[in-house]
């Protein structure tokens, strides 16, 4: 497969992913906001956030705005000195 064909394939896969979203997305944006602080703290501490907040990962994969909020809060916590 040529580079351009590979590029087209990747583009189609991206389109499909974006259009169809993740399977198992059961949270809405409100629930995501409620759980965001706990989820991010667990993520920063590598404490298996997806086990504690099921469905959050799928929502973040399907909602670009919530995904940005997740990345921002994570970056902010990581920018601070570690606390006990």
């Amino acid at each position: 497969m040529s580079d351009s064909e590979q590029g087209e394939t990747r583009e189609r896969e991206t389109v499909l992913t974006r259009l169809l979203g993740p399977s198992g997305d059961v949270l809405g944006c409100e629930e995501c906001f409620i759980e965001l602080d706990r989820y991010v703290e667990l993520d920063v501490a590598s404490l298996d956030p997806d086990r504690h907040v099921p469905g959050m990962r799928a929502h973040l994969e399907g909602c670009p705005a919530c995904a940005e909020d997740f990345q921002s809060l994570k970056a902010l916590l990581e920018s601070e000195p570690r606390r006990p």
Partner: peptide, 18 residues
């Protein structure tokens, strides 16, 4: 109380700013 109060507070500011 499932996260620090400051983390809980931050998300309000980040949401408004974003």
């Amino acid at each position: 109380g499932e996260a620090r109060f400051t983390t809980w507070a931050y998300k309000f500011a980040l949401l408004e700013a974003s």
